[in-house]
Write a protein that binds this DNA or RNA. Structure first.
Lengths: 350, 350
DNA sequence: AAACTTCTCGCAAACGTTTTCGTGTTAAAA
DNA sequence: TTTTAACACGAAAACGTTTGCGAGAAGTTT
């Protein structure tokens, strides 16, 4: 109904110029105490707020940052967003979210939509499809156009940008070591196919842990799941695969699962087969989400500190944005922050 | 480095006017085939895209919608966002997210940040604190300034705007009826204090179901939890309360929990007390999230169809935005869409 | 040859700000 | 009285678009 009030309207109403109004509101000494008060009172009365879009256009920056993530219904990504939003707001930025839904095309489209002036920079985690196709031209292009990117979790080394990652290898290693310490002799891993970088890295950590303890890895103990979005119909298949794993390897006494879902499913299957947890089978998971915390038994897991990752990423991006502002042509040097993982012990281990 | 290219630059480069470039790119018949091709080729080469901010300023609309939710690390809200994002993108809109973190102040601040031109309309779910204080002036003000709002899930009737809700009373009723059908004689409810509207409504549904079946409600079977953000330290207290409930009411054979967390906690406690599920205790939950699906036993629950809610809300908002465009002063009439709940039967009931 | 059309294109305004630079008025200094 | 300084304000440009309108050139009709 009543459109938002503008400087022009205030100016007309008070019979002064637009510039006077603007200056009065910003407490410029150019304006007399008298008119300043008059203008400010009027502005307050009509609840004037400067139009963001106009400011963005003028300042050539929007004070908003774009987030592109594969999906939002996912504890880890939500946590990261929480972290980003927290520091973004604190530093006067807004956050605009795009979902790639793990699709290359949607990732590209979304980035294009946002890159046309809507945002000052990106924080993103790469879609699986993109990772598979290894087509990163859209990232390169936006960077070349002067728009900084910060990648987190799923990153690719070659792209010149800041990154925030978790030390997946180390985390996995620590997780497996926990099982070894606890006396497990036959530790299986449930992981993803290798094109999912985090899966690959965690598998690597598993192998390193075994190696460090002179345990010979057995390929029959390594179950690589084709993770097609973890759809519901896929769940049965997952259960079958895990059941097969147990049945053909009766000696398994420890499981390292690269995510919560694999872990709870493993526990479910193990129980069905009569295994007691943690007495005869111990399980360690990765990613500290609701399932780990609230399922029974609760899961011992490696926390990735998602919120922390988000906070770091946002700081990195905003720092760069505000640095650009002052010091134009500075040598480009990018940072990679590694967030420590942390073992959270719960009921699924002794 | 290389700033994004603008009409002005293209114009200078090709030695024509800005308007010619603009028209050429939009295939205006005013421009000769020749120059049109020339301009388009050049634009393509330099990957020209119109600046969104400038467009927003000119058109006085941003084609982005603002979402304000209490928290994002929450299956239901994430699902809603997924839904909103889905139809928003399909209809050419972007989505910008603000988190109120259940705080009144943050809700107000966030809305102010976005309302100054950054977005065309809001989709939101009210913070608990706001609900408690019953201070809705910020909603009223933004609506009065001509910015439409669509509320979902946590709404307040008096505010003149479109709403998308779940029939909590009916859903709760159906849930409890399921327990009754399954032979439960002593059904307890674990719910929130009444100021949380959904808790109140679901409690009401519980009572109605009992009433319909001539079962006399017992206040000792109604456990109202003070839900302070469900923080971790609060969890112990929750467990104690539930344990107390069971111990002082040994005859309980059915539990209706108004959210997943209450349900899994109830199950955990019940098991500790030696109850078998679903043989000696059946549990129905509300909200279909990861916990319901993947914890053991999996939970029979009322699904709220979060994504559906999001889709409907987005459609409602965009419809209104695009209607305003054509038909200015139209009588204001608001819609409330009720999304059907659906019982999903799993292992926690017979 | 004069009067119309038809094509092409550029000018200028508008969206809402901020800010630089003038400019006119008044008061103080010479 | 004249020059100068301080003060209070306005005009205009800029950010990047789109678009109505005017205008020159060329061609067509009388």
């Amino acid at each position: 109904m009543k459109r938002k009030i503008t400087l022009k309207q205030i100016a007309k109403e008070l019979d002064v110029s637009i510039s006077t109004v603007s200056k009065a509101l910003r407490n410029s000494i150019e304006i007399s105490e008298d008119t300043r008060q008059k203008v400010q009172a009027f502005a307050k009365l009509y609840n004037y707020r400067p139009n963001n879009i106009a400011l963005s256009l003028k300042n050539r920056k929007t004070k908003t940052i774009g987030i592109i993530i594969p999906e939002i219904v996912h504890h880890f990504f939500s946590k990261v967003i929480t972290g980003i939003e927290l520091v973004a707001n604190k530093r006067g930025y807004n956050v605009i979210v795009g979902l790639s839904n793990e699709s290359f095309d949607k990732e590209v489209i979304n980035m294009q939509m946002l890159a046309n002036g809507s945002i000052d920079g990106f924080i993103l985690s790469i879609a699986k499809e993109t990772l598979q196709q290894q087509d990163y031209h859209h990232f390169i292009e936006t960077i070349n156009q002067g728009m900084p990117i910060v990648m987190f979790d799923r990153v690719v080394k070659e792209i010149p940008c800041d990154k925030v990652i978790v030390d997946d290898v180390d985390g996995a290693k620590k997780a497996v070591e926990k099982l070894i310490e606890n006396g497990c002799k036959n530790i299986a891993i449930i992981t993803t196919k290798d094109y999912v970088s985090v899966g690959k890295l965690r598998t690597q950590g598993y192998l390193e842990a075994l190696d460090d303890h002179k345990i010979h890895p057995k390929s029959s103990l390594i179950l690589k799941i084709e993770d097609k979005l973890l759809s519901d119909d896929h769940l049965d298949e997952l259960e079958k695969d895990i059941e097969q794993l147990f049945k053909s390897n009766k000696q398994i006494d420890g499981i390292f699962a690269v995510n919560e879902l694999y872990a709870v499913t493993a526990i479910k299957v193990a129980r069905k087969l009569g295994l007691k947890i943690p007495e005869s089978l111990q399980v360690v998971s990765f990613t500290d989400g609701v399932l780990s915390k609230h399922s029974t038994p609760s899961l011992t897991t490696m926390s990735q500190h998602g919120q922390n990752i988000g906070e770091k990423a946002a700081d990195l991006l905003i720092n760069r944005l505000e640095l650009e502002e002052t010091d134009e042509e500075e040598e480009e040097t990018y940072e990679t922050i590694v967030i420590e993982t942390e073992l959270i012990e719960r009921e699924s281990t002794k």
